[in-house]
Write a protein that binds this DNA or RNA. Structure first.
Lengths: 300, 300
DNA sequence: AAGTAGTATTTTATCATTAAAGTCTGGCTA
DNA sequence: TAGCCAGACTTTAATGATAAAATACTACTT
């Protein structure tokens, strides 16, 4: 067969919704207008209009599109198979690797994986090609894919790379003028860190979000598509890993908050040397946490 | 249809070559041994053996594979369509963008491009997915691909990112012990730079290779798969761009050599501050060159 | 003249198909 | 009789055909 008619089905139902807001006798906008409104091609709009006409909902003759009767619930057509987006696929894929601890150098079965994640092999292939740039998977010489996986080496190099990017961001940041919005962001982050420290005994789980906000704020001062892209990947992987590692979480998070505060204060003092040192210290801790979580996971 | 039998054809001819090295009456190794030798599956080996038997070159019965007559030139089968590797595709693709100056935000026609580059749409899609991580292309909302292209913005951000990586490499490098091989590499590079400077009037073209060697030496001290991957991309793009920009080449290259020498000497003195400053200066020049070459190209 | 619908063409995502890879088992040989 | 080998079979992946969607073009209406 060919492409699915999922776009058509979605558009059809969305057109029903639009008809629902009208009363019989009203006329619908032009084909082009409908197409733009539903973010779909005119071909689909015409297909949907034809169906509505056949079902007697609409009287469609050339430019006149008069509503005959309001749509009923039974007019809707079924959207079979929830289309999985690339974003969802990313989540599921990382989840699969980490949760089920897929070992390194595992050959990946495209057909089976595609079924498992509810996507077509075509989509999965596109997805894997993207990750191959980050060395998570690799093409096998005789065809197919190989999962290189989250080895300790990978974690070390990822952490080191992260450190390179964040250290650079820090150097940029401390040179920014006082009116730059990052300073107020940092101040509110500082306050939030202190606040969380006060209720750390019970709410240590909240640190994850705070951590993400903080790192996003720091790296956000570097307006660079490559940095941004990498930051997304790094944050994704770190986030996922910590999600499954719960050992000493309270203690770990408390220590991290103190490290963040040291770092924030150094930046606020515009002390580049101290800020870089504090950043390095925190990132080193982070790296060790990632490594030990990896080890713990492998032993479990 | 299904996959091409290119692997079979190649293996068949390679088996002919192997038979050419034998005399009639000799017997061939086991299927598994042949498969491993030719880096191919046993299925293919068996197929090739069957064909050789049918053609009367070989008497194949179970384990005995006796050569009947040496292979003739006419026994070879044609390898239709030279299979383009992903590496070649990369070269052709960048070449196409730069040489024909494809503007930014051009919708890419997969079918047409695939024909043009002599690959299947499947392969091209895989390739584009890889580049989408580096923001050179993007998926369009309604399907298809969009070339974001080598805009000035892209060049600036790529250069900045390069500077981040190289600056970090410099900091690592100056901290390395005297017995590290990079020091002797640097010294020979220094000598080569001076040598080229002496004959710059006529041989300024040689700088490109020297430049690549030098940057590879510096970034090579950082053993990190992400850095390495990016370095590959950066070197690819810079290399390709400079290949087409010939304005003031002699003068530009001479200036670059002097900048390199400043940088090398600072590193040899283990003067981190001066080395970083020299690196920054050179990378800034490089960025400007890339930008002006881009501008020149767009005006032409 | 501007915008709209009809028609035709182009292009993409999917699927059945076939080549190739991988696996298992029994038999031969050393 | 232990290890290797080949036959038979199963599984997997890359491809061309195909239908769906997008787009381009033309003609018409207001």
């Amino acid at each position: 067969m060919a492409r699915t008619d999922a776009r058509f089905r979605e558009a059809f139902n969305s057109l029903l919704d639009l008809c629902g807001g009208l009363t019989p006798g009203d006329s619908l906008p032009s084909e082009a207008a409908l197409a733009e409104q539903m973010n779909v091609s005119r071909t689909i709009v015409r297909g949907a209009l034809r169906d509505l006409d056949e079902r007697g909902l609409l009287r469609w003759e050339g430019r006149s599109k008069l509503l005959v009767r309001p749509p009923k619930r039974s007019d809707r057509i079924e959207l079979r198979g929830d289309s999985v987006t690339l974003g969802e696929l990313e989540t599921r894929f990382l989840d699969w690797i980490l949760r089920f601890d897929v070992p390194a150098d595992t050959p990946l079965n495209i057909t089976q994986l595609a079924r498992q994640f509810g996507v077509t092999p075509y989509t999965l292939q596109e997805f894997l090609s993207g990750w191959s740039r980050f060395g998570l998977v690799q093409r096998r010489p005789r065809g197919g894919w190989l999962l290189l996986g989250f080895t300790a080496d990978y974690a070390v190099e990822l952490s080191d790379f992260r450190a390179i990017l964040e250290t650079d961001a820090v150097r940029h940041l401390v040179a920014l003028p006082p009116e730059h919005p990052v300073w107020s962001t940092l101040e509110s982050l500082r306050v939030d860190h202190h606040a969380l420290l006060d209720r750390i005994e019970t709410e240590y789980h909240d640190f994850s979000k705070l951590d993400e906000r903080f790192h996003a704020a720091v790296t956000g001062v570097v307006r660079n598509r490559f940095v941004v892209e990498f930051q997304k990947v790094i944050s994704l992987i770190f986030h996922y890993h910590f999600q499954w590692d719960k050992t000493d979480e309270r203690q770990r998070n408390e220590a991290a908050i103190r490290e963040h505060l040291q770092w924030i204060k150094a930046m606020q003092r515009r002390d580049e040397g101290a800020a870089v040192a504090a950043a390095r210290a925190h990132l080193a801790t982070s790296k060790q946490t990632l490594l030990s979580s990896l080890r713990g996971h492998n032993l479990a």
